[in-house]
Structures are given as structure tokens and as C-alpha cells.
Design a protein around this nucleic acid. Structure first.
Length: 755
DNA sequence: TCTAATTGCATTTTT
DNA sequence: TGCAATTAGA
């Protein structure tokens, strides 16, 4: 393997073999290249067996990219046995192996926020605490903070916002998780960390000696528990390599602690420290802009990004009237870049908060520019998907309380509130799982016969599916049975509304994704198991990232980390928006983090950077006058071109007539996922329009057909109808229309065509 | 049990 | 402003 493609410090990081290594990798400094070359070097030149190397990332995307690129260097044979994954997936994999040590069963399930909330609500009920006084979300966030510090309920000390009740709740919550045979995201790491640190234990020894080399990416984002984990896992050889950039630490609010990367040398005084400071991504002007912003930070590791690239075009700072004016200018700038032959997928629009996206989105739609929104609600967060998933998880692990409480009466099967309460209270009292209490309740004389009957039916239902699972039903077969036999499909069909139609569609899509999983696993190695599938979707966000479609990306700055674009349009650069208000800006740590966020935004741009600030903005229903962001004051005059638009550009059309052309779903994940299914689903005529959104058609896009009252439309099921009313809906405009023979119906406009 | 109405709430969200 | 989540009502 030749290292000629690496610069001096990169080579140093690659060649370093034993002992701790700390790499400060500036934005655009070839970090991924360095990491992958380093691993390739260990494999090929140092002959380290692949299974002895562990590389940890924070996102699945980063893990996937890393594995792919290593594979390109050393071939799939060696790469396959590497341990490459996120903190969570690696921990989950280890925890399946050592679950017995912590009282879990092999088929434990992983609880997401809503599961956690459901469980906490149950805990509160059992303690007769009102969730008004103790909001589950707040309590959980406080508990998670402690878990991220590695503290058990016993270790937590009483403090102002962690009183005795909270400590008790933390303990009860953990107990409830255990009896549910479930873990939350924090547990995955915490439990393995504890095992790895455990002296004189078989598991501990095994874990500490399992890996010869440990590598951590985005090290600035680690929390205390994660740090302790990788320290323990590399304890035997001390070959711990951490790579990160404290200037890009933007997840403090999630427990990330910049102090860890900054203090690494204190913990490992013999660490070799390498700084990658040459930027290969951006023009010199952009690098300068980024530097001038970050250098005002109160505290940071000293380093200086530099580049050999030309100055490039100046940073455009455009002053606009308000958010609509801003959107109009954003769109105009995008058009300009497109006309200069810039690929739309090389253009991105950033904002500080999601709430800013709506106006931008409207402008893109009105102008018929192809765009995609990154982030937002996820497919698997939809209620109907979560319901089916809860059934599946219950089949896998009937002890799961959060799942049981979710679907015991969904669809309604006459199991009333009081019955449910009784069962769960009984479980708490007995210290047993809810499933156990449910089973004994079918015999309980304390319940009316009718109730017992219903409960028994429910138990039988679950048991039948469990038998089917044991008999070898695949996840897909099982899910199909559940959708039908639980009565869920019928329940939705009976509702017969626009929403329920959409839900059925989502479920079909969900079933499709299970089939896809089965095909995937078949192609690779293992057989597809329900455990595997559930773990995968617990730890992988479905539309994990940007689709590689020719569309302009709209996203929060947080979502932009790790990406790069030819052209970046940064919107809402005003004080109180960015840096965000409501932060205690006297707290220099918080302001520093906002500053780093701005640094991340700027360093995403390769060639062209436009920054927008409005003098007036309506956000959360409040209109306010705003000053341009203090961060803009840091930009030196020489690299900036200020543009003020005193007469505003005018507004994009906001006609009450909704254009069918733009009536495609607004919601982010729909947008991301429905292309795939559109072709195969004849029941969705509206989706025919999807093709037209392709960038190729931009130049000659056809005039939009409009939807207005009194107009005739066609629906696949109801046939021809007349539009009576149009309202904006969450997904796409909601149309009320009368269909002869079917009466008045509310339909999402994407299910309609002009007729 | 389902719907409508009301209330309260709103950074960022890798898993 | 826009929504989701709870609550009241039929």
C-alpha cells in the first residue's frame, strides 16, 4: 500500500501503531481517508487480524462509509471481519453475548424515546405521581444525563434538580426496564461499560482483551460513559486511537463532552498527538471565514486550518426584509447556481431550527425547484408503524411492558382502561412482568368474566404468533399475519378516511421494508431473524440520510455535519435565531457551542457561500425585529460582499388555489421514501407526478394544474367527484369532495388527479 | 369509543 | 404559527 496520497501528519497518524494516538482532524482535512488508511495499514502491513480491530462511530452512515472505503483498500475478505459500527450497535452486539451477566434475556428489545416515556408513565402511575408535576420527558432527560455520566441510581447524589423522588424514579425505571427485558439507548453502552470495567470477572477480562486496536471517530462527541467504554475495551494494549475536532463539537446538549478530547493528553500523557490542519475542501475565502468565526471562541485547542486553494469568490452576506423575502432570495440564488451547471445535489440550504424550513419549502415548491428535506419525523415514528412494531416486539419478547401497553387495546378489543390499570398495578406489586400479570389475570376471580374472556383471547393471539415464530415463520410472514389477525388492517379499512388510507399505505411500505431486510440478509451472510430485524430498526433511522437524488437539500446545521456541498446557503443569520435565543448566552460554553455550529455550517461549503439575515422574522407565531448575527461581525471585510435588497424581491406565489403539481407530500420522510413504492402502487395516481419533479424536467416543466372548488377530480376508488373545499394538511393538501354513490369524502390531494 | 375542541408548547436529535 | 396531545362531549 502506498502512502503517497497522504500528507505529512496524515502519514504520521497512519503509521503510528502502538500506544494511544490523538488526532485533531480539522474540517475538510481528510479525516476519513486517514482513518481508513490507518486501518488498512494495520491489516495489510502490521498483519493485525481484522476481528482484533474495533472502529466506533456515531452514525450508521459513517460506519458504512468507513467499512466501504476500507474494503476498497484491502478487499472484502479482510474487511468483513472488522468490528465497525456505532457505539450503540457495537454495544448491542456485545450485550447479546453477555446479557446473562446483567440479568437480561438474549431477546431483549431496545426502547426508543416513546417506549421510554410509556414505561416512565407507568412507573409514575404506580407511584401515584401526576405527570403534570413530573413530566416523563423531563424526568427521563435528567436520568439520561446521569446515565451518560455513568451513574447508577445508587451513585446519584441528591441535588437541586435531582431530588429523592427522582432518584427513586430512576431506580424504578431501571427495574421496569429489566422486568420488561428491555434496555434504552443509554443502557446499551452503560451496561457493557460496566462489564468491561469489572475487575476479576470473566466477562471483564474477555472484553478488555478482545480487541487489539480501538479507534473512535468524532471523538469530540463522546460522553463520559462512551469514553470509559473505549478505554476499557483497549485496556490491554492501550492501542486507543481517537480522532475528532473540538471545534465541531455541537452535541453538548446530548451529553457530549468536549472536555474529553481536550483532556485526552492528561489521561494519556504518552499519547502521540497529530493535527491535521490542511483543508482540501474549501476555497481560501471560506476557510478564512470559518477561521475568523471559530477563533473568537473562548476556549479551544490551538490549531490553524489552512489551504493551498485559491481565494475563490467572496462570501455573500445578503440582508433581506423578512423570511419570505429571504426564501425568495434563496431560491433565486439556487436558480443562479443551477444555471451555472452546478449539480442540484451539490447545493444545500441550512437553517438553525426546523421551524424555518416551512417558508423555504413553500418557495421551492412554488418555484418548482426540486428539493428534499433532510431530517424531521422518521418513518418508524409513525403511530401505525409503531403499533405493528409493538406487536412484533411482543412476539419476540412478551415481557415488554411498553409494547404491551401500547397495543393491548389497539385496535379496540374491549379491554378497558380499568382492566389494564389493574393488570399493570398487579405486575408492579408482584415485581413480575406485565405479561406474567396478564396471563394470571385471565384466571383472576377479581375480574368480570367478560373481561377475562377478552384478555384470554388476546393472550392466545400473541401465543399463536409466538408458536408461528418458533415454527419458523420469517419476520415478513409474521408481520403479515399480525396485520391481518390482530384486526389492524380491518380497523383502518373501516375508518375509510384519507388518513387511514395513508396509514394502510405506510403499513404496506413497512411490510415491504421487512421483505427487503430478508433479501438483504440472505445476500450477505446470516439468516434473517426477528431479533436481527428489530435490532436493526431500533438502531437505524430509516431514511438515514440524504437520498442520492438530484435535488437541493434543506436541513438544519446539525444535520449538515460531516457533509460537503459546492454551494451552501445559510439562512437566518440573526441574533436570537443563530445564536439561538433562550440560551443563556452569559454561559460562554453555550455561546461557544453556537459558534462551533456556525463554524460547522461555513466549513460545509466548497466553492460558494451565501449568508442571509432578515431584519424581521416570524417564528413560532411571533414577529420580531432582529439584528444580524454577532457571528457575522467576525468576518473580515476583505472576503465578504454585502448585498442589501431594499426593495424586496417580491414574494413567491401564495395563491389559495393549490397547485396539483406542488401538491406532492410535504412531509420529509414521505418525500424520501415514496419514490420507491410509487411505481408499484397503482392505487396512487397522484404519484404519477413524482417523475416530473426530476431535475431533468426542470427546464421545461409543464404548467401546473390547479385544484379549486367546483372542479372535477378523479379518485381510484370513488371515481369522479367535485371538489368542495381545500385545506392545507400535514402531508399534502386535504381536499373535501363529493363522489356520487360515496358521498362527501376527505381525501389527501395526492390521491387525486384532475378528472 | 370515537370525534371535536382545547390547550400548551416550540432548539438541535448521531442511536 | 402549527402541531400533537390531552380532554370533553356525544
Amino acid at each position: 500500500m502506498s502512502n503517497t496520497q497522504l500528507n505529512e501528519p496524515q502519514t504520521q497518524a497512519v503509521r503510528h501503531v502502538s500506544g494511544p494516538l490523538l488526532v485533531f482532524a480539522g474540517a475538510g482535512s481528510g479525516k476519513t481517508r486517514t482513518i481508513t488508511y490507518r486501518i488498512a495499514h494495520l491489516l495489510a502491513n502490521e498483519k493485525v487480524p481484522p476481528y482484533r480491530i474495533l472502529a466506533v462511530t456515531f452514525t450508521n452512515k459513517a460506519a458504512g462509509e468507513m467499512r466501504d472505503r476500507i474494503e476498497q483498500l484491502v478487499g472484502s475478505g479482510l474487511a468483513r471481519d472488522l468490528w465497525v459500527g456505532t457505539f450503540h450497535s457495537v454495544s448491542a452486539r456485545l450485550l447479546r453475548r453477555y446479557c446473562g451477566e446483567v440479568g437480561l434475556n438474549r431477546n431483549f428489545v431496545i426502547y426508543d424515546e416513546s417506549d421510554q416515556k410509556a414505561l416512565m408513565s407507568r412507573v409514575l402511575k404506580s407511584k401515584n405521581l401526576s405527570d403534570r408535576e413530573y413530566p416523563p420527558k423531563l424526568i427521563l432527560s435528567r436520568i439520561h444525563a446521569k446515565k451518560q455520566e455513568g451513574l447508577s441510581p445508587e451513585q446519584v447524589e441528591r441535588s437541586r434538580n435531582f431530588d429523592t423522588t427522582l432518584i427513586e424514579l430512576y431506580g424504578l425505571y431501571q427495574k421496569a426496564l429489566l422486568s420488561s427485558n428491555a434496555v434504552d439507548f443509554e443502557d446499551l453502552i452503560l451496561l457493557i461499560m460496566r462489564l468491561s470495567e469489572k475487575p476479576n470477572s470473566v466477562a471483564g477480562e474477555e472484553l478488555r482483551s478482545r480487541f487489539g486496536f480501538v479507534l473512535v471517530d468524532e471523538f469530540q462527541d463522546t460522553n463520559s460513559t462512551q469514553y470509559r467504554l473505549v478505554k476499557a475495551l483497549s485496556a490491554q494494549t492501550r492501542n486507543l486511537c481517537v480522532v475528532g475536532d473540538d471545534d465541531q463539537s455541537i452535541y453538548r446538549w446530548r451529553g457530549a463532552n468536549v472536555g474529553i478530547i481536550r483532556g485526552f493528553r492528561r489521561d494519556f500523557p504518552d499519547a502521540c498527538v497529530v493535527k491535521l490542519e490542511q483543508n482540501y475542501r474549501s476555497s481560501a475565502n471560506i476557510v478564512q471565514a470559518a477561521l475568523s468565526i471559530i477563533e473568537s471562541a473562548r476556549s479551544r485547542e490551538p490549531k490553524r486550518l489552512w489551504t493551498e486553494q485559491a481565494l475563490g469568490s467572496p462570501i455573500i452576506v445578503r440582508s433581506v426584509a423578512d423570511e419570505r423575502d429571504e426564501a425568495a432570495w434563496v431560491v433565486r440564488t439556487v436558480r443562479e447556481r443551477l444555471s451555472q451547471q452546478v449539480d442540484p445535489r451539490q447545493i444545500a440550504v441550512f437553517y438553525r431550527v426546523h421551524a424555518q424550513s416551512r417558508v423555504l419549502e413553500e418557495a421551492f415548491r412554488a418555484e418548482n425547484l426540486p428539493y428534499q428535506i433532510i431530517g424531521g419525523t422518521r418513518f418508524f415514528d409513525r403511530a401505525e408503524i409503531k403499533d405493528i412494531l409493538a406487536y412484533l416486539r411482543l412476539v419476540e419478547n412478551p415481557n415488554s411492558e411498553a409494547d404491551l401497553v401500547r397495543i393491548i387495546n389497539v385496535p379496540a378489543r374491549g379491554i378497558g382502561k380499568k382492566t389494564i390499570e389493574l393488570i399493570f398495578d398487579e405486575a408492579t406489586r408482584m415485581g413480575s412482568s406485565a405479561w406474567h400479570a396478564l396471563k394470571s389475570s385471565t384466571e383472576s376471580p377479581g375480574l368480570p368474566t367478560a373481561a377475562r374472556q377478552k384478555l384470554r383471547q388476546f393472550v392466545n393471539l400473541i401465543n399463536e404468533w409466538r408458536a408461528a415464530l418458533v415454527a419458523g415463520n420469517t419476520p415478513f410472514q409474521l408481520a403479515n399475519r399480525i396485520v391481518d389477525e390482530s384486526g389492524y388492517r380491518k380497523y383502518l379499512q373501516d375508518q375509510d378516511s384519507a388518513e387511514s388510507d395513508a396509514r394502510i399505505g405506510n403499513i404496506e411500505e413497512f411490510l415491504g421494508s421487512i421483505a427487503e431486510y430478508e433479501d438483504d440478509t440472505e445476500l450477505t451472510d446470516e439468516k434473517s431473524t426477528l431479533t436481527g430485524y428489530l435490532e436493526r430498526i431500533s438502531l437505524v433511522a430509516a431514511p438515514d440520510a440524504m437520498k442520492d437524488v438530484p435535488k437541493v437539500a434543506l436541513m438544519t446545521v446539525h444535520a449538515a455535519k460531516g457533509l460537503e456541498f459546492d454551494t451552501v446557503l445559510l439562512s437566518g443569520m440573526e441574533d436570537d435565531v443563530f445564536p439561538y435565543k433562550g440560551l443563556d448566552l452569559g454561559e460562554s460554553d453555550e455561546l461557544d457551542e453556537e459558534r462551533r455550529l456556525a463554524y460547522v455550517a461555513v466549513t460545509r461549503a466548497k466553492v460558494h457561500l451565501s449568508i442571509f439575515h432578515a431584519s424581521q422574522r416570524t417564528l413560532f407565531g411571533q414577529t420580531r425585529y432582529l439584528r444580524r448575527s454577532m457571528f457575522l461581525d467576525d468576518l473580515p471585510d476583505g472576503i465578504v460582499k454585502h448585498e442589501a435588497s431594499h426593495q424586496s424581491l417580491g414574494r413567491f406565489s401564495n395563491d389559495k388555489n393549490i397547485e396539483i403539481e406542488s401538491a406532492r407530500p410535504l412531509s420529509r420522510d414521505r418525500w424520501l421514501t415514496h419514490e420507491k413504492s410509487a411505481a408499484s402502487d397503482a392505487l396512487r395516481p397522484g404519484e404519477r407526478f413524482v417523475d416530473r419533479s426530476a431535475f431533468d424536467d426542470l427546464a421545461h416543466s409543464e404548467p401546473a394544474t390547479t385544484l379549486r372548488r367546483g372542479q372535477s377530480v378523479f379518485h381510484a376508488r370513488f371515481g369522479r367527484g367535485i371538489v368542495e373545499n381545500i385545506e392545507s394538511g400535514a402531508e399534502s393538501p386535504m381536499v373535501t369532495a363529493t363522489f356520487p354513490g360515496f358521498g362527501r369524502r376527505k381525501i389527501l390531494s395526492r390521491y387525486l388527479v384532475n378528472g
